[in-house]
């Protein structure tokens, strides 16, 4: 009995020792700063004014939602909605379309997938730099292409104009996100049994019917989960905007997360943390939906 107890103690010690680094590091460098940051959201905490740090309750939040016309936060919320919805819609539909073409393997389809997946390994920051140069208002290649096909006569300052800056960033984001959907959906499509399609052909179903009655229902859970995952991801992705426009001109292309980054850099930590806390709340809300959907779908599939 004593021997078994000793063995068990040894086993437990082994478990704890090997798990420890992966628990302690996130505690110190992720959870602690996060909790501290959540507290800063209720403080007036500006590094420019370090002697004047104090608790102000919901003061930062009141400032964010202040109903005066000069308040840009409502525009930023609207931008975020456009950023997420428009990007997601086109990433998904175009990605799905390409995936349907990749479903049947052909010679070189593995290499093809590897090539179109490559942008995924590059940081959003560098991607943003590339698109900033292509959207350049005087000598950008996009202006040149549009001029050659006769769509514009004069170069357009895509990133310098309030009307086009955000949409230019969204365009780049769509480009960046399509391969993700393509890869995910292709993998799902290849898992659908061919027998179903053959049976449907025997019954005289056309491609359209097959798509809606076999393809979509079969990969329904992958579609839903990738969509939900991507909402969180796109919301969380200020990198492109940071390097393409820095939120400009005049803050017109900021989304919530890029705005927060700007507040951090202007050293208004209190206000930045308030924005951060709002983002976390949004994220928690979405994670709950995601987990519920996972549970629901895996229950339904079995």
């Amino acid at each position: 009995m004593n021997g078994v107890g000793k063995l068990k103690r040894k086993r437990n010690r082994y478990i704890v020792c090997l798990l420890l680094p992966s628990i302690i590091l996130p505690m110190i460098f992720t959870y602690y700063p996060m909790l501290k940051g959540s507290m800063m959201a209720f403080q007036s905490y500006n590094l420019m004014d370090i002697s004047n740090i104090k608790w102000i309750g919901f003061g930062n939040f009141r400032k964010l939602f202040a109903p005066n016309p000069s308040n840009s936060f409502y525009t930023i919320l609207g931008n975020t909605l456009k950023w997420v919805c428009v990007s997601l819609f086109f990433q998904f539909t175009i990605g799905f379309g390409i995936a349907l073409m990749l479903k049947k393997k052909f010679r070189g389809s593995g290499i093809y997938q590897g090539l179109i997946f490559f942008p995924w390994a590059v940081s959003g920051f560098v991607i943003g730099i590339m698109w900033r140069w292509m959207f350049n208002g005087t000598s950008g290649v996009i202006n040149d292409m549009l001029r050659r096909i006769g769509m514009v006569s004069e170069p357009i300052g895509w990133l310098a104009d309030k009307k086009t800056a955000l949409y230019s960033c969204i365009f780049a984001n769509i480009w960046y996100g399509i391969p993700f959907f393509t890869i995910m959906i292709t993998a799902a499509l290849r898992g659908v049994s061919e027998d179903l399609y053959e049976a449907a052909s025997v019954d005289g179903a056309n491609a359209w019917v097959k798509f809606w009655c076999i393809t979509v229902p079969s990969i329904r859970s992958v579609l839903l989960l990738t969509l939900l995952m991507r909402v969180i991801w796109i919301f969380n992705f200020p990198d492109l905007i940071y390097s393409m426009t820095q939120g400009g001109p005049a803050g017109s292309s900021h989304i919530v997360t890029s705005y927060m980054m700007q507040l951090v850099q202007s050293l208004d930590y209190g206000l930045a943390s308030a924005v951060g806390l709002l983002s976390i709340l949004f994220m928690i809300f979405f994670v709950i939906i995601y987990l519920a959907a996972t549970k629901h779908l895996s229950g339904a599939d079995e």
Binding site: L19, P26, Y32, P33, G37, N236, V264, G276, S279
Partner: peptide, 24 residues
Amino acid sequence: ALLLFYLVTQMIPTFIMLPSLYQM
């Protein structure tokens, strides 16, 4: 609980903890 502990860190954007991490 441990797996959830890891999952949560993935959902939190890094820049939310930047100010307090900088202080630390």
